[in-house]
Design a protein around this nucleic acid. Structure first.
Length: 422
DNA sequence: TCTGGGGTCCTAGGACCC
DNA sequence: TCTGGGGTCCTAGGACCC
């Protein structure tokens, strides 16, 4: 028999991170915004209680925010990333295997003797060492662990933040009370397809005719149903799979019409993305350039082109990628649109070590790897060298993103360390 | 005025080959 | 009345997640 799995997730993670270094926020409604200060992507319990929905555009909530004095933060990914690794390393120390699933979630393989009480002790340890509150759900499969976790979170007082659905006296009751769209892996669309075969609760899904499920939801539905019945289809993945693509895209602070400005924005995206693949020792086989007008303004003319170029030889060279991006941009750019977003994707990533050149590849000439040297300097000194095409901050940069309410990088920047007073 | 960004997996359909 | 058909590979797009 398989060992049980647990899903541990951090409660209101970004908000909790802000609170660790600013305890005056505890007990108060706070929210954290997406890139560009556009949407609300993390809410404290107090903010949830005010009815602020997940993903809501900030401007739609201004009324509530003013009225209740909700504190608003731009997202500070440097801080959250660092806090995340602290939480993860504590978890990793306690179990035989861990899969870090996202910045605020991890699946754990539990030892045979693991009890709910031990889960509570682990939870207390994470809280003590990082200040981050977590919940834990336990089950035979990832899906059941997710479901358990949801129950633990919704009934924190009752469960103490840790729940094992396998030990509950009435798991069917819990499944009966949960709607399919609240299940991990079931979104709006699959839920609609499930309703068509008269399935709306998780319990109905679990007990539905597998043939009907397979017919209307394909292998995805089949897998979900099996997982719900305790048959493991999704294994714990300790080693993260190799990346297949890297994206860099941003909405603009304000709309952009000029080709030259799009060029600068794209150059910055290429710079970020290429640095990322180089740090992973990867080469890109192809590149996609995307543009988009403001989809929330249907009264304006809409244009959302994308174009792909496949390199003869995979590359990670910034200047080569920038040249390609520029060429592709020129092919899809049309005058007269107000662009709201631009992005690039580096796709078909292959390891630069394992890559086998084809017969027709240009012979590799040994040369000084300027990109690597620049990466190294930028990593140490903080982005001091940039490509000429990336423009200069403060000049013609309507496209740059807004981030006006960011907290300090308390844990990763010497200049921003919190100060303690005696 | 103001509406995120970065990923993965699956499927359908076209191109191509024998 | 006949005008193949099946396998494979690739790509675009849909759906989902955090």
């Amino acid at each position: 028999m398989n060992d049980r799995l647990a899903l541990v997730d951090c409660n209101n993670f970004y908000c909790s991170c802000e609170r660790v270094f600013n305890p005056s926020l505890i007990g108060k409604p706070i929210v954290v915004l997406s890139n560009n200060d556009g949407c609300i992507i993390s809410r404290s319990d107090e903010a949830k209680a005010l009815g602020i929905p997940m993903g809501a555009p900030l401007h739609e909530q201004q009324e509530t925010i003013r009225k209740h004095g909700v504190q608003v933060f731009s997202s500070n990914y440097t801080l959250y990333g660092d806090m995340s690794s602290r939480v993860m390393s504590i978890l990793a120390d306690e179990v035989p295997a861990i899969e870090i699933y996202s910045i605020d979630e991890a699946f754990l393989q539990l030892p045979k003797n693991f009890s709910v009480e031990m889960g509570k002790a682990l939870r207390a340890k994470v809280l003590k060492h990082t200040g981050i509150p977590v919940c834990m759900g336990i089950g035979m499969t990832k899906l059941l662990a997710k479901l358990s976790n949801r129950y633990a979170k919704k009934n924190k007082m009752l469960t103490g933040g840790v729940f094992d659905i396998g030990e509950h006296w009435d798991p069917d009751g819990i499944m009966h009370e949960t709607q399919c769209e609240d299940l991990w892996g079931v979104g709006k669309n699959l839920a609609r397809r499930l309703r068509k075969i008269d399935v709306s609760t998780v319990l109905e899904f679990k007990n539905a005719d597998p043939v009907a499920v397979r017919m209307s939801l394909g292998v995805i539905g089949e897998r979900l149903q099996r997982e719900m019945n305790g048959i493991r289809c999704l294994e714990l993945e300790e080693v993260p799979a190799d990346k297949k693509s890297v994206m860099a895209s941003r909405s603009f602070g304000s709309p952009v019409e000029k080709l030259e400005e799009l060029e600068v924005a794209l150059s910055n995206h290429v710079s970020r993305a290429s640095e990322k693949i180089r740090s992973g020792g990867l080469l890109a086989s192809s590149m996609v350039v995307m543009l988009r007008t403001n989809r929330f303004k249907p009264e304006e003319p809409q244009y959302c082109p994308s174009i792909r170029f496949t390199f003869g030889t995979p590359t990670a060279s910034t200047s080569q990628l920038m040249k390609a991006a520029r060429r592709l941009l020129h092919r899809i750019y049309r005058l007269g649109y107000r662009y709201k977003k631009a992005g690039i994707m580096l796709d078909g990533l292959v390891g630069s070590v394992s890559y086998q050149p084809s017969l027709f590849d240009a012979p590799v000439t040994p040369k000084i790897d300027v990109d690597r040297i620049v990466d190294d300097i930028n990593r140490r000194m903080g982005r001091v060298i940039t490509h000429g095409s990336m423009g200069v901050k403060g000049t013609g940069d309507a496209w740059r993103m807004k981030s006006g309410r960011k907290s300090p990088s308390y844990t990763t920047s010497w200049g921003e360390l919190p100060e303690a007073r005696l």
